[in-house]
Simulated scan of single mutants.
Amino acid sequence: MYEPARVESIATGLQNLQSIVAGNIEAVSGDGWHFYLNEEGKIMRLEPNRRAALLLFEATGVLTDVYCGNVVFLGETADGSEGNVPGHLIDLAQQLFGLNQPVNQ
């Protein structure tokens, strides 16, 4: 079973992203955002990630694949760099799943 969906700041270097998804990364792009997952998730028979699929479907109206294992959603800056997840996507995830968010101290 997967951990609860959450919003947090992360280091977006390749090694950290690979650690989060437990393997080599594959990107799936949206409009101003993308997510990474384990590119061999299906081959490794990782559990389908229904939350990622539902969020993608609700955000785009399209679902073209089964996404397996952990995923990490990120936003994109104007120059194509990693950025913060767009607020509308966080709002949608909050509506669908509730989110564990870090407490600002």
Results as ranks from 00 to 15, higher is better:
1 M>I: 00
2 Y>F: 15
2 Y>C: 07
3 E>S: 12
4 P>L: 05
4 P>S: 08
5 A>E: 09
5 A>W: 05
5 A>N: 08
6 R>Q: 12
6 R>C: 07
6 R>S: 09
6 R>T: 11
8 E>D: 01
8 E>P: 00
8 E>G: 08
9 S>R: 11
10 I>N: 03
10 I>S: 06
11 A>P: 15
11 A>Y: 11
11 A>I: 14
11 A>M: 11
13 G>C: 01
14 L>W: 11
17 L>A: 07
18 Q>D: 04
19 S>R: 14
20 I>A: 01
21 V>W: 04
21 V>S: 10
22 A>I: 02
22 A>C: 11
24 N>F: 07
25 I>R: 02
25 I>K: 03
25 I>H: 10
25 I>L: 03
25 I>M: 10
26 E>Y: 10
26 E>K: 13
26 E>S: 07
27 A>M: 14
28 V>Q: 06
28 V>E: 10
28 V>D: 12
29 S>K: 14
29 S>T: 15
30 G>A: 01
31 D>I: 01
32 G>H: 00
33 W>P: 11
35 F>P: 05
38 N>L: 09
39 E>T: 00
40 E>C: 08
41 G>T: 04
41 G>Q: 15
42 K>A: 07
43 I>D: 15
44 M>L: 15
46 L>K: 14
46 L>R: 12
47 E>T: 14
47 E>K: 06
48 P>Q: 10
48 P>S: 07
49 N>R: 11
50 R>H: 04
51 R>P: 12
52 A>P: 07
52 A>I: 01
53 A>M: 15
55 L>E: 13
55 L>D: 10
55 L>F: 06
56 L>G: 14
57 F>T: 15
57 F>Y: 12
57 F>P: 08
57 F>D: 09
60 T>Q: 08
61 G>S: 01
61 G>I: 05
62 V>M: 11
62 V>N: 03
64 T>P: 10
64 T>S: 12
64 T>F: 13
65 D>T: 05
66 V>T: 07
66 V>R: 11
66 V>F: 08
67 Y>T: 09
68 C>A: 14
68 C>D: 09
69 G>W: 00
70 N>V: 00
70 N>T: 04
71 V>F: 11
71 V>T: 15
71 V>W: 10
71 V>H: 13
71 V>R: 03
71 V>Y: 04
72 V>S: 05
72 V>A: 15
73 F>A: 04
73 F>G: 07
74 L>C: 11
76 E>R: 15
77 T>I: 07
78 A>R: 11
78 A>Y: 00
79 D>I: 02
79 D>F: 08
79 D>L: 10
81 S>D: 14
82 E>N: 09
82 E>G: 03
83 G>A: 03
83 G>D: 05
84 N>Y: 02
86 P>G: 03
87 G>D: 02
87 G>E: 04
87 G>P: 15
88 H>L: 02
88 H>A: 04
88 H>Q: 10
89 L>D: 08
89 L>Q: 00
90 I>P: 05
91 D>S: 13
92 L>V: 06
92 L>E: 11
93 A>K: 03
94 Q>N: 06
94 Q>W: 02
97 F>W: 10
99 L>Q: 01
100 N>P: 01
102 P>N: 10
102 P>A: 00
102 P>W: 02
102 P>V: 05
103 V>C: 05
104 N>W: 09
104 N>L: 03
104 N>M: 11
104 N>C: 12
104 N>P: 05
105 Q>R: 04
105 Q>L: 08
105 Q>K: 09
